[in-house]
């Protein structure tokens, strides 16, 4: 299903508004226990009801948005911070560094991301910092791999060779001629990855390896709500909906940016698709 550009912007604006409001204000204290108000359904006082400890669900979802989206952005940022320079160096310098990097890629590709993150979090123990570390350890590789493949492609371009002949220093050559060609692809991959990271955080939190109670992370809220699913299904429905909507929104934007980026590339040089870059033979 593809959303119209207007709808896509509207949903994004609403989502961003929700996040901004959540950053500065919640209707109630999301940690305030009110045992007298436990497991209430939607009402004028508590719009989304309350949980098993009487805490306002909307406030906890808003606080959870800060936690879930904040953690995923932090993971994304650190992954880019590690992956991009590593990919640039590996692709441009080559030699032993590139060989070592290829071994690392091979090692990470032996298991799916989820399993790797699960093993790492299991070894490190539950908690927010360990969760960030585990998912970042899995995620940076895909950025380094993407950047490396673009560098290998760009290095063969005549304009890069001409810059080299003109006496351009390697670091300047990378910044001027190679790095700009990675930005569009990185933007697409990062946007598509936000949804995956959110799902990963929620999955690990659901099984108790994420932020610990009383922290209202969406996955952890799902886990807490499952005990009361038959009597108070809203405890799972609303956090679940938040995860679904956020993932759909980021995926939709990722697809949109990918299509748009491909068109842009086509009009300037050869058409490249994300898959052709990510899954080039020998990369």
């Amino acid at each position: 299903m593809s959303l119209s550009i207007g709808l896509r912007y509207s949903f994004l604006t609403l989502f961003l508004l929700f996040l901004i409001v959540a950053l500065v204000w919640t209707p109630y204290d999301p940690y305030q226990i009110q045992m007298g108000d436990r497991l209430q359904t939607s009402s004028a006082i508590h719009w989304l009801g309350t949980d098993h400890l009487g805490r306002d669900l909307l406030s906890r979802i808003m606080e959870g948005a800060r936690t879930t989206v904040g953690i995923s952005l932090a993971i994304l940022f650190v992954s880019l911070l590690i992956g991009v320079p590593f990919g640039l160096l590996s692709g441009y310098i080559g030699g032993w560094l590139d060989k070592a990097f290829k071994k690392i890629i091979d090692a990470f590709m032996t298991l799916p991301d989820y399993i790797f993150a699960l093993i790492l979090t299991g070894l490190l123990g539950p908690g927010l910092v360990n969760l960030i570390f585990a998912i970042t350890a899995v995620k940076w590789v895909s950025y380094a791999r993407l950047v490396r493949s673009i560098v290998l492609e760009q290095r063969q371009k005549d304009y890069v060779r001409l810059a080299e002949i003109s006496g351009m220093k390697p670091w300047k050559l990378v910044v001027k001629h190679i790095l700009p060609h990675t930005i569009g692809n990185l933007l697409v991959l990062a946007t598509l990855d936000i949804g995956k990271i959110i799902l990963m955080i929620a999955s690990l939190s659901y099984i108790g390896l994420g932020p610990q109670p009383p922290s209202p992370e969406w996955g952890a809220m799902l886990s807490e709500g499952k005990t009361y699913f038959q009597t108070a299904p809203h405890l799972m429905i609303f956090p679940g909906l938040c995860i679904v909507i956020t993932v759909l929104l980021t995926n939709s934007w990722g697809d949109f940016l990918r299509d748009r980026y491909d068109v842009h590339i086509q009009s300037h040089s050869a058409k490249r698709s994300m898959s052709s870059i990510l899954f080039r033979k020998g990369v």
Binding site: K157, Y159, R161, I165, G167, H268, S269
Partner: peptide, 22 residues
């Protein structure tokens, strides 16, 4: 090497590939 290369110019086969599209 960079100094020596200042005195050499090059023109390649594909003019499109010789100019950075950005």
């Amino acid at each position: 090497l960079r100094q020596a290369r200042q005195h050499i110019g090059a023109v390649f086969q594909h003019p499109t590939a010789a100019l950075n599209p950005k």
